[in-house]
Design a binder for these strands. Structure first.
Length: 819
RNA sequence: GCGGGAGUGCCGGAGUGGUCAAACGGGAUGGACUCAAGAUCCAUUGGCUCAGUGCCUACAAAGGUUCAAAUCCUUUCUCCCGCACCA
């Protein structure tokens, strides 16, 4: 009807251009305005299109940014691109283009889409991690961390993905598979660069209390850090001291053997001549089975030929090598108490090692020969000499004290968290600014020589790391002795880039420093971060560490980067797969909807019907509903003559309150419902002032149409910068009364329908109300008549008696009589 | 196995001690408007009942607490997510 005049794509373009031209969303530090930093995880520009997950993500952020902005905050809402990384390299390889070109064209495309979505980014702050002006500072921070001893190089068994031809961080190996390509991860001994995140394990754990994140993400981080209290106990093996970590020192009397990890670097020291053959055979076997599913791995081991001395009992116990002990947790060796640990139990059963019960349950008595599994609960100590009869809980303390006093052990804290492996054997990343000199050893590149630029001419076809074969890059001079030296050819993993990008947005053009401290301390921390849960123990953990390290080095004044986090969940398609760029069928192009409905419809749809972690299905019919809402809003502009009344004001106030609260809590669908209800309520007419309020309320969701309508009403300002409406006092009673009228109308209609079914035609309804409700119904008489199509008469219940009708009326429920 | 979350109508999903047969959207059915289509609007969409605003039955299952439970507690089942031999 009217709306055919509305050319959505034209309106969108118009306002997008105006926003850009008048720098509506560009911001500066301000002393008078309170800042608010809204940020979405910066996207990886590999795709030439966006998938629904992205679009939704950005819209969630944009709605929030717009909302905060209209609430008077100085809102920083930037966008940038995580343009380094393996996918660009592989994609580029496949398509035969240079990763740089690939990244830059992708960015252009993505930007165009994002602009088409109408998001209110401050585009002047754009960054891209492959830009030397950006990665220069990666190198700078690397050097700073190196100075502080927080970056180091060591040879270690690391996760290696043969498909990606690179090592992976611990966090990137998911259940023994590469997080990116799903390939089996194998173990390799390599010299690698690490960041010492473990130094911050405790802080990372404790400070989770400071931040308002979804509980599940916090729990995931907590589990990942994996703090446990225990005791390191000294066992003598071949007259040498070996430390063993345990959380159950109370079971020390029950130790019947020891197990050292098969991957332990010092394993061979314990292997006797006689056992050498067996051990080697065993190690070979383990290697060949390592590709099997870890879940089905049986506990296996072999006797090393050595014996350990239990420090409290002085018993001589055999030392085994086993496949179920982790080399890099604790000390890589465990004291095995088969009676009270399931793994030890299985192992002991298999190799017929004695089982000794030292904890007895209170209800019954354990006998080692009858046990079918380990007893791991609490109980009372037995067979433990002077410690007998103590409860296991107190025994942990008493025995720990005992060991500490005798200098046989020490209480310690263990973490599961391992240091962050940052080197990658790939081309498309930040070069690690290190030079190896035969004379001087490891020499950091001097700061003034940064950035160490990635060479653009490169042979991508070669196997392995293309940088390693690039002589111009590799061969260099030692900055110390000027002698011949070679460059580190590993690059940094992409999570280094993403660990501080949000700081660069605060001052993205600084040539002298990574950022100006004042600016960063003004904008940071990010008040509202938005992104997927898949980064729970990767990006989100690394960034927290990075900021803590920067704080300790004096770069920043805060120690948590993201105050609040909103997690939209991972989008799944109906087949259970994650939506991703590799599955184009889940990808929607913004044009698909914008041509027909306009992008505001798409935005509204995504914010309305899609629930956070459910699959998203893009159907035309679904979009239709959102389109109707927008059309209702547009049509209402032709109904502006009505003067407002008390009830109208009340309704508007209630709507403002609901919409505001729900946006604050990211319950967008509820906000939209409140708007829909108001649109229905006012469908007969609305005052101009209230109409403007409604437009403001919907503007974060549908910014283009809101601007247009706002403008059409004669306003010269941008609605995007207008003040968010404030809810006046709400009269709940009035709302209840309105509902009461609605109920009455429903009841009347119900009766009429019944009568109609019987073929009886009536013309008039008499409503018999209790005395103090008469006025209420009299006021609503017009509405009742209109909605029922009947003449209505409002009477007192007393009249019913006089008229001889047997009709009852209750408060809120008047008697109805049809005639 | 451990940890986290969830199970409401044809569907997506509101509701978390009484006002709830259940917001809002989608779908379906019927009607109005129209030459027609679209758009728009109205009604119905658990069962029964049809002088009538009523009654009955739901909120994964079974128990319990309570004057009162979808909502609190216990157990069980199912699904999703995360971790997975961490000593």
């Amino acid at each position: 009807m009217e709306n055919h005049k509305f050319n959505f794509s034209q309106i969108e373009k118009k306002w997008q251009e105006k926003w850009e031209k008048e720098k509506v969303f560009e911001v500066k530090e301000s002393k008078s305005k309170k800042k608010y930093y809204v940020l979405e995880m910066y996207p990886y520009p590999s795709a030439s299109f966006l998938h629904v997950g992205h679009v939704r993500n950005y819209t969630i952020g944009d709605v929030y940014a717009r909302f905060r902005r209209m609430n008077g905050f100085n809102v920083l809402y930037p966008m940038g691109y995580d343009s380094f990384g393996l996918p660009a390299e592989t994609a580029a390889k496949k398509e035969g283009i240079h990763p740089k070109k690939y990244a830059e064209t992708s960015i252009k495309k993505i930007m165009a889409y994002q602009k088409a979505l109408g998001n209110s980014y401050d585009w002047s702050r754009i960054i891209a991690s492959h830009d030397p002006e950006y990665y220069k500072w990666n190198q700078y921070f690397f050097l700073k961390l190196y100075e502080k001893g927080l970056a180091y190089r060591k040879k270690a068994p690391v996760n290696f993905c043969e498909n990606c031809e690179s090592v992976l961080a611990n966090e990137e190996s998911e259940g023994g598979k590469c997080w990116r390509c799903g390939n089996e991860v194998i173990q390799k001994d390599l010299e690698q660069w690490f960041f010492k995140i473990t130094d911050y394990a405790d802080k990372l754990l404790k400070d989770l209390n400071k931040i308002e994140w979804p509980e599940r993400i916090k729990i995931m981080q907590k589990n990942w850090i994996g703090k446990s209290h225990g005791t390191n106990i000294e066992f003598k093996i071949n007259d040498e001291k070996w430390l063993v970590f345990t959380t159950r020192p109370d079971t020390i009397y029950g130790v019947t053997f020891m197990v050292i990890s098969a991957q332990h670097p010092r394993l061979m020291e314990l292997v006797s001549e006689a056992q050498k053959k067996d051990v080697e055979k065993f190690l070979k076997k383990i290697k060949s089975t390592s590709e099997k599913d870890l879940e089905e791995l049986d506990k296996e081991g072999v006797f090393t030929g050595s014996f350990a001395i239990n420090p409290v009992t002085n018993e001589k116990i055999p030392v085994w090598a086993g496949n179920f002990v982790l080399a890099d947790y604790g000390s890589g060796m465990v004291m095995a108490v088969p009676a009270h640990d399931q793994r030890d139990f299985e192992f002991a059963k298999k190799y017929k090692i004695p089982i000794k019960v030292v904890i007895q349950p209170e209800q019954y008595e354990l006998a080692p020969e009858k046990m079918s599994r380990a007893y791991t609960e609490k109980g009372i100590l037995a067979n433990s000499k002077e410690h007998d009869k103590i409860s296991s809980d107190t025994a942990i303390e008493i025995i720990s004290d005992f060991l500490e006093k005798k200098k046989l052990g020490k209480r310690t804290i263990q973490y599961k968290l391992r240091d962050w492996l940052i080197s990658r054997q790939r081309y498309w990343g930040t070069p690690i600014p290190i030079i190896y000199c035969d004379k001087c050893g490891i020499v950091p590149v001097p700061e003034k020589e940064l950035p160490v630029k990635l060479p653009e001419k490169i042979d991508l076809k070669s196997k392995g790391n293309p940088l390693a074969t690039n002589k111009d890059f590799v061969n260099t001079q030692c900055p110390k002795c000027a002698g011949k030296a070679t460059r580190e050819t590993d690059t940094m993993g992409g999570f280094v880039d993403s660990s501080w990008y949000f700081l660069r947005y605060c001052d993205n053009k600084n040539k002298k420093k990574p950022f100006d401290e004042k600016k960063v301390n003004y904008w940071m921390p990010v008040d509202q971060y938005i992104g997927g849960a898949e980064h729970a123990v990767m990006h989100l953990l690394y960034a927290r560490f990075f900021i803590k390290a920067l704080k300790d080095m004096g770069f920043v004044k805060f120690d948590e980067p993201f105050k609040k986090l909103f997690n939209q969940g991972i989008l799944h398609a109906s087949d259970g797969n994650k939506m991703s760029k590799s599955r184009p069928k889940y990808v929607i192009l913004p044009e698909m909807v914008s041509d027909k409905y306009g992008i505001d419809t798409a935005r509204l749809f995504l914010m309305f019907v899609s629930s956070p972690d459910k699959q998203m299905e893009w159907t035309d019919k679904g979009v239709e509903g959102s389109f109707k809402i927008i059309n209702k809003l547009i049509r209402l502009k032709d109904n502006l003559n009505t003067k407002s009344n008390k009830a109208n004001e009340n309704r508007i106030n209630a709507t403002v309150k609901k919409v505001t609260e729900n946006i604050e809590n990211f319950e967008y669908p509820k906000s939209i419902i409140a708007i829909i209800e108001a649109l229905d309520y006012f469908s007969e007419g609305i005052s101009k002032k209230n109409y403007e309020i409604l437009i403001k309320l919907i503007s974060p969701f549908c910014p283009h149409i809101a601007e247009e309508l706002w403008h059409n009403l004669g306003n010269k300002s941008f609605i995007s910068l207008e003040k968010w409406p404030k809810a006046g006092k709400i009269n709940e009673k009035l709302l209840a009364q309105e509902k009461q009228i609605d109920n009455l109308i429903e009841d009347i209609n119900n009766i009429l329908r019944i009568l109609e079914g019987k073929g009886e035609k009536k013309e008039k309804i008499k409503i018999f109300a209790i005395p103090n409700e008469i006025d209420l119904y009299k006021e609503a008489k017009d509405k009742i008549e209109k909605s029922t199509g009947m003449k209505a008469e409002i009477l007192s219940i007393k009249d019913a008696k006089e008229q001889g009708k047997k009709i009852k009326a209750k408060p809120g429920k008047p008697g109805i009589f049809v005639e």
